[in-house]
Design a protein around this nucleic acid. Structure first.
Lengths: 175, 175
DNA sequence: TAGCCTAGAGAACGAACGTTCTCCAAGGCA
DNA sequence: TGCCTTGGAGAACGTTCGTTCTCTAGGCTA
């Protein structure tokens, strides 16, 4: 097992634990145990917890956006919110990892969080252009509001959040 | 200065510090200093940090909703989002205290957070009824998505969040 | 005035946690 | 076989933090 394998196992454990229970609630020792890696190797791969957190967020950003992009393909808001419905109903769903991390750590995690939201905004803008929206930037802003709003609302237990948001997205196209 | 005054000063300091920097980032000792109160009295008023956090959230809930309710009065979504615009532009704005607390502490703060969102939902439902919405529950769900979505989006620096959300709210009425 | 109660200041305690260090076993190489 | 390097397990260290304890000063009552 080489260095890359170790990093993958560490990041897998980090994503599972950090997302499920919060970053500050998970210690390096518990993470080490979950990853099945020695503390020495953990610190060789990621010299501090802050760097591990940044790596966790960046990898989650890539995977999350890639999954969404693949699912939506050339589709529109229907596919966008269908993907959200499926995400919200996964067993370990606990809201947006980036918003949670921001609430928890504030400025210390800002760069990965802002990067993530900018990339999501760019994806939504592409969708807006395909839709023929007259003002794609505004439309992307609005879709971002709907996606984030539905996500935090679903996190707190309102199960029809994605459906309600979809109706707003469709209404705006007609309006 | 009696007991109630002390509690007020403690809660004032707690709200300022917890909201600005996060709950876990503020220790009881710093809070004691900011409130100008002895540690003994602090623990007489609030026997543990968890109880102080709950009291902070509950008092913020009351004040926040009361301010919104007063501003909106018998108005509709225009007034609702006008209030948000003003809130977002306050200097110390840092998103929704309840969503941030949830991201930070997860289940440990769930009851006050859920209470707050339920009360906000109820206020939005009243507004939906006044508007003559055909399905006030759905409309309240949607307004909650727009309010929370605009709030987290504004927190991350998109300054026109409230305006973009308002347009969606108006579009749905027309659609 | 003498004794007692209160309250404040901050030292102290115990736990948790990020990070580093020590010890030892195992394996490659002369 | 004997030596040297590598890596794992976990002890140890220093700090932070929530919470409690101690000591002392001041004011009220008899």
């Amino acid at each position: 097992m080489d260095q890359a394998d170790h990093e993958t196992r560490i990041l897998d454990a980090a994503e599972r634990l950090f997302y499920a229970r919060g970053i500050q609630a998970v210690g390096m020792d518990e993470l080490r145990t979950a990853a099945g890696v020695s503390l020495k190797r953990l610190y060789q791969s990621f010299p501090s917890k802050d760097e591990l957190v940044a790596a966790y967020l960046d990898r989650r950003d890539e995977r999350w956006l890639s999954s969404l992009r693949t699912f939506v393909g050339d589709g529109g808001v229907i596919e966008l919110f269908a993907w959200l419905v499926q995400w919200f109903s996964t067993e370990d769903f606990r809201g947006c990892a980036f918003l949670n991390a921001f609430g928890e750590l504030g400025g210390r995690v800002s760069p990965p969080v802002l990067r993530h939201k900018d990339r999501l905004h760019a994806l939504l803008r592409e969708l807006a252009v395909r839709e023929g929206a007259p003002d794609p930037d505004l439309r992307a802003d609005q879709l971002l509001i709907l996606v984030d709003g539905a996500t935090v609302t679903a996190m707190l237990g309102r199960t029809n959040a994605a459906g309600a948001a979809l109706r707003l997205a469709l209404a705006d196209v007609r309006g």
